[in-house]
Structure formats: structure tokens, C-alpha cells
Simulated assay, not measured.
Amino acid sequence: MKKLWDISPPVHAASPVFPGDTPYAQSWNAEISPGCPVNVSSLTLSPHIGAHADAPLHYDPQGAAVGLLDLSAFLGPCRVIHAIGVRPLIHWTHLAHAAHELPPRVLVRAYTRMPMDQWDDELPAFAPETVERLADAGVVLIGIDSASIDPASSKDLQSHQVIRRRGLRVLENLVLDEVPEGDYELIALPLKLMSADASPVRAVLRQL
């Protein structure tokens, strides 16, 4: 069996979300008892919780919902590049050491330990010029181990606007703490949510 790296954080009531966004909550509609053979729950959550894929609808009022996206970007050869400790913006110079002959998908590790239990107002993000360079290199999906490819304080979301204009897909909130720099197969399929602006994913990397 080829080795798998689970790069998805756990999702539960304590999972951090963007301030003002909807946290995870779960209630039970049915519970196993003498008159009921099953447990059935209801979930309330932001689609941006945990590891997730943004849809164009998230940053473009005319953009496609996540359930309409072609899945091919979310599955296939991928490179993990380390830019550990870089704040606030990841520039091309931070990636250049591993940017030769890039595969179509690039995930960037910026944290020493990804904060799975608290919101980070100073999260690492991509400089928009970096996203342009990745697109120029033929990359179709970018990912990061922070909650956004733009700074948390950004109002114009310049890197999101680059992926809108260049047609890239994006994964956020990945856990790359234990993943060595190198090439893998990415598997991170969004749910077929036909009107949603994002979808949680169970993101994994598989040894080539």
C-alpha cells in the first residue's frame, strides 16, 4: 500500500472559523433506543470550516457554485513546498527553491504547526504576484495551511481575484505539519453542493 498523509484538520465545535462565520454545531434528531434503531444528526456549519475548497461564487457574484466545478483540478500530481515561518505574504522567492518543473497542483506549508484550535488574525497568505507566477507555470490548483490565501484583514482579496481571473482552484486550512517537501498525488474532492460558495474536503496526499 502506498503511504497516505491525511492533511485535513478535525472538524468539531471548537474548530476555528473566520470571525463572524458559522461554527460547527451538531444536534441529534434520533438516537438509538428501544423504539429507534439508528442515530441521526443534524449539522450546522460554514462550508469554509476545516480543509475546504472555495468556489468562484465565494469571490465572484457571477461565479460558479462548488457543485458545478470540474473535479479534475482536485485530483492528481501535486508538490508540497515549504515556506515555514514566512509572514505576512508568501512571495515567489520563498518558493523558487522548489519551483522547477511544477506539477499542476502546489500546496504551501507556512506554519511550523498549523493552528487547529484557534483563529490566527496574522495568518500567512499568498502575495498576488506569487499566484500569477504559479498560474504562468501551469498550476491549476493552489493550497495553503492557513485559513485563507489572502490576509485575514484584506478587503479586496487580491489573491482571490487572481485565481478568479486565471481560473485556478484553491484549498485552504490544510494540515501539512508532517508532510516532507516533495511530490505526491493529491485527492481532495469537494461535495456536490449545487448552490454553495465552498465545500469541506477530506484532503489526503498519496505517495507516488
Score class of each variant (00 low, 15 high):
residue 27 S to W: 07
residue 30 A to I: 01
residue 30 A to N: 00
residue 32 I to A: 11
residue 33 S to E: 07
residue 38 V to M: 08
residue 38 V to S: 06
residue 40 V to L: 15
residue 41 S to R: 10
residue 42 S to L: 11
residue 43 L to W: 03
residue 54 D to I: 06
residue 54 D to N: 10
residue 55 A to H: 06
residue 55 A to N: 02
residue 59 Y to S: 09
residue 59 Y to D: 02
residue 60 D to K: 07
residue 65 A to L: 05
residue 67 G to Q: 07
residue 69 L to D: 05
residue 71 L to G: 11
residue 72 S to Q: 04
residue 75 L to Q: 13
residue 80 V to S: 09
residue 80 V to Y: 11
residue 81 I to W: 03
residue 83 A to W: 00
residue 83 A to L: 01
residue 84 I to R: 09
residue 85 G to N: 04
residue 87 R to W: 09
residue 88 P to R: 15
residue 90 I to S: 00
residue 91 H to L: 08
residue 91 H to A: 08
residue 93 T to C: 11
residue 95 L to S: 04
residue 98 A to T: 02
residue 102 L to D: 04
residue 103 P to Q: 02
residue 110 A to E: 02
residue 113 R to Y: 14
residue 114 M to S: 15
residue 116 M to D: 11
residue 116 M to V: 15
residue 116 M to I: 14
residue 116 M to T: 15
residue 117 D to P: 03
residue 120 D to L: 12
residue 120 D to W: 12
residue 122 E to D: 15
residue 123 L to C: 10
residue 123 L to M: 13
residue 124 P to F: 08
residue 128 P to S: 03
residue 129 E to G: 08
residue 132 E to L: 06
residue 132 E to N: 06
residue 132 E to V: 14
residue 136 D to R: 04
residue 142 I to L: 03
residue 143 G to V: 07
residue 144 I to F: 03
residue 145 D to I: 03
residue 151 P to Y: 08
residue 152 A to T: 12
residue 155 K to D: 14
residue 155 K to I: 11
residue 156 D to N: 13
residue 156 D to M: 12
residue 158 Q to L: 07
residue 158 Q to W: 03
residue 160 H to S: 11
residue 162 V to L: 01
residue 164 R to D: 09
residue 165 R to H: 10
residue 166 R to E: 01
residue 167 G to H: 04
